[in-house]
Design a binder for these strands. Structure first.
Lengths: 197, 197, 197, 197
DNA sequence: TATGAATGAGTGTTCATTCAT
DNA sequence: CATGAATGAACACTCATTCAT
């Protein structure tokens, strides 16, 4: 039932295909460089038909961002099943490292979209900010659960570290940067556990 | 000094104005969203005249990136005059914090260009990578001077932290994020000084 | 017949109109002097729409040349129905003479395109060469059928004579040049018939 | 006295260099494809300076055509020193054959200019027509001297043959076409000599 | 005279968006 | 709902011509 046809009743899957294609192509090529035709072709949907599902390109971009948000939600929900907060954070980091080859080629999906859309004041920047905020909030919760009073600051530090090293990994096309930083971050997380005095 | 007319002899300063305008507008609007006309208008130069100085838009973008490289070079040269490596690094961080309002509005100039250009394979991505590498190398040198064997890794960590928090600062339009992370980074740098055993 | 929608299925005829307009306007104005807008206007098609049918101006030019090739093919097929080779050749010459007013204004369509495109190395020169070669080959066949061992040389001579007098007719805006040369060529063709020894 | 500085008194040779460069480049690239900058570069003259000698591009083109006319005049004057008219005509043909490699690459200078400029009604077409007419007239004179009453018609036939085979030679990039047709024309000229009855 | 620089009207091409069926 | 086609407003880039010195 969950997210069935938000708009459409028919189950042809075109809308879903468009969103998935958009998410992928926008990540790979960037928002400005990607044309509606690019996305339509990838989704195997006729160009004219796109506008039945999305009134403008921006709405399709928005849907793609929200798709990222959903993916993130699923990931975090899975992590939540782990027993310890530091374990969850380290699993998050390990997930990033696992994706290092993709990051080397295209950067972090959310981060590169944020970077591009932050220059615009059309509301799309707020949508991507929401996704980022959800990640930040979840991370803060983990640090809180670890008993840290500076949880927000630590969350910003961790997410920043990831976003930054994604950028460097992409800039230098070197997945190893992400791997090394991942290890460092895991050690750092361990160091933050309050010692049972 | 002395690098006045890099290419053009006449001293009308149009080339310089174009590069400066490009650097600013490209940072503010992004590469794809910025038209040659935008830059020309900002530099108060007729559109057709831009092509007297730069054969293509890409060449103008390249010049703007190299201008960033020159700015960076000047900054690092100034920092080099400080006595201690950790002092230099902390001064670097303080410089970032001083620019936090700009970062909140447009992100880090180099970082956002890197993010956008990394998706392209036209050589512009290598130009921005060079600038980033110069910053990374300098940072590594400082950590080496501090006697750290893991200097490269630390350099990646520091620059990543900056790039990442620039992105968050921009995404959430919150300069305080940069300020807080700056303080944290300064403390972190202090903690890395080898204790005089 | 049968060559209706070569590429496009819909029967609006725009593609055909564009090719016809291109063939005409390119002949009248030359390739370089003709803008896409000129052709679009002549075909009564909005400029932007041209690019739905042809990716580049060169592709439209190519289509126009191939249209000439098709016209030539039709002409030669009609001539082939004549019983004697020398009759076919003389009918060909008479066709040229019939078109002398057009030649006086714009020259031979194929010849003037060849002249202009031969200076370029973009492949368009080969397309027009193909059309010319087809005419040359057909002419050679007729001379062969007349029992001439020097058929190729004679074919070159005949086509050259036509192309050359087209140029002079155009240069001096004098259709009579074509008429006179046509008569001379007919006599020449007659003189080549092997006398029944 | 001949062609000293028609306009300029100073003997810097820039005007001459411009005309020579124009004649060459216009032949190689065509009129429309050639920019003033192309010619200026070839002549090693600053772009802005061109307009001191020629008010418009068309005037420079005109000068280049007249330069062709002068070259033709020199050639015909040389041929006039030969004793027999048929010898002069055959020498003319041999000159064409000698230039066959150039023709294969760029066609006949006068012919290709005529072809391109005939589409325009700006007077340039008349200038090139004058050059062509001078060649035609001279040829007619030779046939008259040979006692032919149909001298004009024969002149048109000979010049047409040359212009036409130049075009084919260029189209098929085959200098041999010109060589073979040259031999044929020489034989033809010989056949026209009135037998001393 | 000489010359680098300036200017602006095109030109080919792209693309989001709309329309007719 | 679906779809090929239509539309027009950009945009990067070119070039003849002019200008200031």
């Amino acid at each position: 039932m969950a997210d069935s046809g938000t708009t459409t009743g028919r189950r042809s899957g075109k809308r879903e295909r468009l969103v998935a294609a958009a998410a992928r192509v926008l990540h790979e090529q960037g928002v400005e460089k990607t044309t509606i035709a690019d996305i339509a072709r990838t989704a195997d949907v006729p160009v004219g038909n796109v506008y039945y599902y999305f009134k403008t390109k921006d709405q399709l971009v928005e849907a793609a961002i929200e798709e990222q948000g959903r993916t993130l939600h699923t990931l975090l929900a899975a992590l939540d099943r782990l027993p310890e907060p530091q374990g969850r954070l380290k699993a998050l980091v390990r997930g990033w490292v696992d994706q290092r080859d993709l990051a080397a080629r295209y950067g972090c999906p959310t981060g590169s979209m944020a970077s591009e859309l932050d220059k615009r004041a059309d509301g799309l920047d707020r949508v991507v900010a929401d996704v980022m905020r959800r990640l930040l909030d979840w991370t803060e919760h983990q640090f809180q659960a670890m008993g840290r009073a500076d949880a927000r600051e630590l969350a910003v530090a961790l997410i920043s570290a990831y976003q930054g090293v994604s950028l460097l990994t992409n800039t230098f096309r070197d997945p190893d940067l992400m791997a090394a930083e991942g290890e460092r971050l895991e050690r750092w997380i361990d160091s933050l556990v309050r010692p049972p005095s």
